[in-house]
Design a protein around this nucleic acid. Structure first.
Length: 822
RNA sequence: GCCGGAAUGGCGGAAUGGUAUACGCACACGACUCAAAAUCGUGCGGGGGCAACCCCUUGAGAGUUCAAGUCUCUCUUCCGGCACCA
């Protein structure tokens, strides 16, 4: 018997498949349906870690199985090669980022070959390729022309370590997502994309997607849509008014003061007009707020604020004068930056009113109208509650019927929302989401294709001048003064204005890398095209993506950005569908053997290359697929002993595949036949559901039986085909050793036969009063009476039935009989 | 605080309302061996019993059902998202 020499076998077949172009994907194959299986393309950060294997080798099982099942599968690969990680690493080593990135890509591709992944490399996409980023720039200019991209002085998150602006999504708990430095607030002139214009569609269109609820909910939370009203409050003795946003217009009669964010433009205006009596105090407070970082503002929740002395607003519902405050608990960038405070019915307003001794007015009678009619003692119970609210002992933020609200008194808060909005304001939706700031003050990115002209303003670079190539410069270190390193590339920067032909300057910021990755999957469908970013007909063959597999960290970043980008392209009639990905799954995380995140400092890093060398790529694939359910976001510790377990399984398959072992009695084969068909069914269904772990378990169960009883060659080859997507090399070797000329990966997927799944006898669980008391064997088609007779003839079970009346019998054929006695 | 998800042996995990702990790992014993490794075989949730067998067990408690890990309610803990968002 030959030894299972994984290194020799894997190298041999990897070479053979590449030579024959086995995984080159045609756009159309007669009689086959197209299927687009996408995994997030990696940063070329250095070398492949176990996480990369998990991300690419496991979905490859699905790609291979789908091909055998008659689908024409696109399973492409590429590199998201611009961006901070690559650049920072290059700076640390004193190398040119381009050179460093390209080296990494070459090395990672070499490593990727050891996975046996069935990527079609002829479609490779690299975001640093001018033939790619030309289209990134082109799309940006299209957005600019449609006013989807705009430049504005914006309060921004500034990372002092990376020396660049960050998008809201890239700030996690006040820290930079990349380097964990505390983020500072600055105001800078930045390019924005109007993602907020798409907020409603980004929320509403989620419902139709086959995505995990968790991702949908997270995106909805992130967008944070709330529906309410905008209401104007006149400022007494002036022409001006203050507009507030509220989700509780029903509590308008309980508004006892207004609060403006310190940054609200009206504050400066009122001070300038000498309307306020305490200008100095106000300016001090505004200044103190500006000096606070977002983090400070979030942490210190003790309510502070200053009254605008001499300024009164008028509650439009009852023409009553109420005071106006500024306080930093009101945020400038949400709603209108001003609120009507209803201390009786809002926790924060309540706290503020307590501290500043402001009146509290109860206008909602606690609990619901339904309760009021059902419970006759309702009033008595709740009068006490109302008294507590008015006395400032507590607040009620729930619903109920209105009180003390003139003509609205007595109606439910739900109705009152509509009625009061109609009478005193306008309906308004507000979002937590902010526009996407895409300017980055870094070198290693796509130059923003804009020319600034003194006469014409910001002019998009014309199509014929694209791409605007990233120039090779010597000093690409970020300066920290808010300017991109490209600002120092004088020669490159100086151009003629495309409109007036006068001297002008290029924009020197580069684009956020999330822009690059917002459309890469479209390019895979037509990666070599020089006329358009992808031919619309070719996109139609493949998109939307059937299944997109990736990491949970992209839930409110890449996944949201690319949905927006795609919708914008859709509105420009450049793509065929409004949503890019039909089905999405987030995979889990592979941890170190100690259950902790793998890191060099912890010394718990598993090197996939070493395992491949020692045990083989097939073993690594199989182990990662076996470690836990792939379509759930758990974290799975790498167990070095567990790897040996799946290697043992492959050894047993190898042994069973040797000619001298393909023996056994035909009668036994017949018995095994039912197990075989059960396995085909289980593996087929589990692979479709991405439950690779239980699919492997089914194959292990089968081989346990086959080893015991013997297996025929044809039965063994069926097993090989099912195993082929999981362990492509060993199965190819055993398949060819059996005399087959063509690759096993071109074979058809086995089909199961329900009739053949039928075992000769079945085991039936016997319950007495719902308690399992034992099992009996019976013919599969046995009737309830047959089984009952068997039970009564079976002494240990019959004992339970002695001197008992059988009241009821529940019989589930081939599974269980429950005899109810007593 | 709001919105989601989860909790099963020593470990990773498996179970269309129908024999809980499949499959793998670890462990124990046995075979082979001078010995070890590898391999093969047997056992392996907890408790009681010589045994047949009995009792308990899917985070806790209640409920629905002939039957609940699975459905319903209450609670606990952990994980993810949002959070002074009006």
């Amino acid at each position: 018997m030959h030894k299972y020499d994984h290194t020799k076998i894997e190298k041999k077949w990897q070479k053979d498949w590449a030579k024959k172009g086995l995984y080159k994907t045609k756009d159309k194959v007669l009689g086959k349906k197209n299927h687009y299986l996408l995994t997030e393309f990696p940063y070329p950060s250095g070398n492949l870690h176990v996480g990369h294997w998990y991300a690419f080798a496991v979905p490859d099982i699905a790609a291979r199985a789908l091909r055998m099942q008659g689908k024409n599968v696109l399973y492409p690969a590429g590199f998201d090669a611009f961006g901070l990680p690559a650049e920072n690493a290059a700076i640390k080593r004193g190398l040119d980022p381009r050179k460093w990135t390209l080296q990494n890509i070459a090395y990672m591709k070499k490593q990727m070959a050891s996975m046996g992944a069935s990527f079609d490399w002829s479609r490779e996409v690299q975001t640093i390729d001018p033939n790619y980023y030309r289209w990134t720039q082109w799309m940006f200019t299209q957005f600019l022309k449609k006013d989807l991209a705009y430049r504005k002085e914006t309060p921004v998150n500034w990372c002092p370590k990376d020396k660049t602006v960050l998008a809201n999504e890239q700030v996690v708990g006040g820290l930079c997502e990349r380097c964990d430095s505390p983020v500072e607030q600055r105001t800078m002139l930045q390019w924005n994309l109007r993602i907020t214009d798409y907020a409603d569609r980004l929320v509403d269109d989620l419902d139709a997607l086959d995505w995990p609820q968790q991702i949908k909910d997270s995106q909805k939370n992130w967008i944070g849509r709330s529906e309410g009203a905008e209401i104007d409050f006149k400022i007494d003795n002036t022409e001006g008014s203050i507009r507030v946003f509220t989700t509780r217009p029903d509590t308008l009669f309980g508004a006892t003061y207004l609060v403006l964010a310190p940054e609200h433009p009206m504050v400066a205006q009122l001070c300038a007009n000498q309307t306020c009596a305490n200008t100095t105090e106000i300016e001090e407070y505004v200044g103190a707020t500006k000096r606070k970082s977002d983090l400070d503002r979030q942490e210190n929740r003790e309510k502070t604020g200053v009254k605008l002395e001499g300024v009164d607003a008028v509650n439009p519902a009852k023409e009553e004068k109420i005071p106006v405050y500024i306080a930093d608990y009101v945020l400038p960038h949400y709603g209108t930056g001003a609120i009507m405070a209803v201390p009786a019915h809002d926790e924060r307003d309540f706290e503020f009113a307590q501290k500043f001794g402001l009146p509290i007015k109860c206008v909602i009678y606690p609990k619901t109208v339904a309760e009021m009619t059902v419970d006759p003692e309702y009033k008595q119970k709740n009068n006490a509650l109302v008294a507590e609210i008015v006395a400032g002992k507590r607040c009620w933020s729930g619903g109920g019927p209105l009180i003390d609200s003139r003509t609205y008194t007595g109606i439910s808060w739900i109705e009152a929302k509509k009625a009061i909005t109609a009478a005193f304001g306008t309906p308004k939706k507000t979002y937590r989401l902010r526009d996407w700031i895409v300017s980055r003050q870094r070198y290693w990115g796509v130059p923003i294709p804009v020319i600034h002209c003194a006469a014409c303003g910001a002019v998009p670079v014309p199509d014929k001048d694209l791409p605007v190539k990233l120039p090779a410069i010597k000093d690409y270190l970020p300066s920290g003064d808010g300017k991109s390193p490209l600002a120092k590339a004088d020669k490159w920067k100086k151009v003629k204005c495309p409109q007036c032909k006068g001297w002008a300057e290029r924009e020197t910021d580069t684009l956020d890398t999330f822009v690059d990755s917002s459309w890469y999957f479209l390019r895979y469908t037509d990666s070599k095209n020089k006329k358009v970013f992808a031919d619309k007909k070719k996109m139609k063959e493949w998109t939307p993506v059937n299944l997109y597999s990736g990491g949970a960290e992209h839930t409110t970043m890449h996944l949201l950005y690319s949905r927006f980008w795609h919708k914008a392209l859709y509105d420009l009639k450049l793509v065929n569908e409004p949503e890019p990905y039909t089905r999405r799954m987030n995979r889990g995380l592979i941890m170190g053997p100690d259950g902790q995140k793998m890191s060099k400092s912890r010394g718990n890093v598993i090197d996939p290359d070493e395992i491949v060398k020692r045990l083989g790529g097939d073993t690594v694939r199989l182990y990662l697929a076996f470690i836990g359910p792939f379509n759930e976001t758990g974290s799975y510790p790498w167990n070095p002993d567990g790897v040996v377990g799946v290697r043992r399984f492959l050894e047993r398959v190898w042994k069973l595949g040797q000619p001298e072992n393909a023996t056994g009695k035909p009668a036994v084969f017949k018995e095994l036949e039912s197990s075989l068909h059960k396995m085909i069914k289980k593996v087929t269904e589990d692979v479709a559901a991405l439950k690779f772990n239980t699919a492997i378990a089914a194959m292990m169960t089968f081989i346990n039986e086959a080893e015991r009883d013997g297996i025929s060659r044809s039965q063994f080859e069926t097993l090989l085909k099912l195993l082929a997507p999981f362990a492509p090399h060993i199965t190819e070797e055993l398949w060819r050793a059996g005399g087959h000329k063509k690759s096993i990966h071109l074979e058809k997927w086995p089909k199961w036969d329900e009739k053949k799944m039928q075992a000769l006898t079945v085991t039936i669980a016997v319950q007495i009063n719902g308690k399992v008391r034992g099992t009996v064997s019976a013919q599969p088609d046995a009737s309830q009476e047959d089984v009952l007779a068997i039970v009564q003839g079976h002494a240990p079970l019959a004992k339970h039935l002695e001197n008992q009346t059988i009241r009821r019998v529940i019989y589930v054929p081939q599974r269980l009989i429950n005899i109810v006695i007593g």
